[in-house]
């Protein structure tokens, strides 16, 4: 680790490379976190299968690319397919655990996550998959900072999808229904909002977001059946850090996590990057909890 640290200090350009690429991947993390915050805020459910939905989105786009189609066309396909998957997930399982203790929803979605990951592993095997359109690389700072164009495209698309969703929630009728339900489900119900319908739609919307993220992930990076849990943990960590209703915070935390992860991978070694993510999550929880304890409150 120390030799790598030396490299960073002596040639800061490497740091710039890590930071830039970290921001690029961080946008994808933020997108997934946005979806998790949505479900959490609206129906008080923590979707532990969030990462598996991302993984599924990736496989859909990968299949599309295998048919010879441009992978970018896979983005809307992934979103559409995952929307349906999310709807089904809600209708079959999630609706039963919505009004119970939050741990029950954690356990139920945990089971769903295992189911999905192992299913894909059985069907497609555990090999790494990618569907990268060859768009070349941009080089800066004497070639030390290299940015794959597809990663840049993924960043832009992630932000675009996020902004579109935000606009939808802010200005559409369904979006208003979602926000009303999030603030006060009982009042919303009394005023004629079909809460169950809103829940189903929100969950499906979240799945579509994950589908988009997965699609971008398979194009700009790689996927395999077990990328789910790290994605779930990342988005959970981001939401806990920023707070469920804090969208700008989610974006900042997401980008920040991308950067932190990249630096950790470089300094600690790639094999410890996932461990870093998981331990960071625990640290975030502990710190947040201690801070609240000073006010004699608990993480809700």
């Amino acid at each position: 680790m120390w030799s790598n640290l030396q490299i960073l200090l002596q040639a800061p350009a490497f740091g710039v490379d890590l930071a830039v690429n970290g921001v690029l991947v961080g946008a994808v993390f933020a997108l997934v976190a946005f979806g998790m915050a949505l479900v959490w805020g609206v129906m008080n459910v923590i979707n532990v299968a969030q990462g598996e939905l991302v993984m599924l989105g990736g496989y859909v786009t990968w299949l599309v690319s295998r048919l010879g189609v441009n992978p970018f066309a896979g983005l809307p396909v992934s979103m559409a397919v995952l929307f349906v998957v999310g709807w089904l997930m809600y209708r079959i399982v999630v609706f039963r655990v919505v009004d119970r203790d939050m741990f029950i929803s954690v356990l139920a979605t945990f089971g769903l996550g295992i189911l999905l990951a192992q299913l894909i592993n059985q069907v497609f095997g555990s090999d790494l998959r990618t569907a990268s359109p060859d768009l070349g690389t941009l080089l800066f700072m004497n070639g030390i900072v290299s940015v794959g164009v597809v990663k840049l495209a993924a960043f832009v698309l992630a932000l675009l999808v996020g902004v579109l969703l935000w606009l939808f929630i802010k200005f559409s009728r369904l979006g208003q229904a979602i926000r009303a339900t999030a603030q006060n489900p009982r009042a919303a119900r009394i005023l004629g909002v079909e809460t169950d319908h809103v829940f189903a739609f929100t969950f499906a919307l979240n799945a579509a977001l994950c589908g988009a993220a997965g699609s971008l992930a398979v194009m700009a990076y790689t996927i395999h059946p077990y990328i789910g849990l790290p994605y779930t943990v990342r988005s959970f960590m981001i939401v806990v850090t920023a707070g469920v209703g804090n969208l700008p915070g989610v974006v900042v935390a997401g980008l920040g996590l991308g950067v932190a992860e990249n630096f950790a991978g470089f300094l600690l070694g790639a094999q410890f990057q996932v461990a870093f993510v998981f331990l960071l999550m625990v640290l975030v929880l502990v710190v947040r909890s201690r801070l609240l304890r000073h006010q004699r409150k608990y993480l809700e």
Binding site: I46, V48, D101, M102, F103, S105, V106, L107, L229, V233, F236, G269, Q271, F272, V274, A275, F278, L279, M281, V282, L285, V286, S289, R290, R293, Y298, L299
Partner: peptide
Amino acid sequence: ILDLRGHYFAIATLGLGIAGGEIAAG
């Protein structure tokens, strides 16, 4: 982490369990 309630504790332990494996693997 035992000051964390319910679902937070569960997810924290998930992180620890997996991190253990990742660290041992490296």
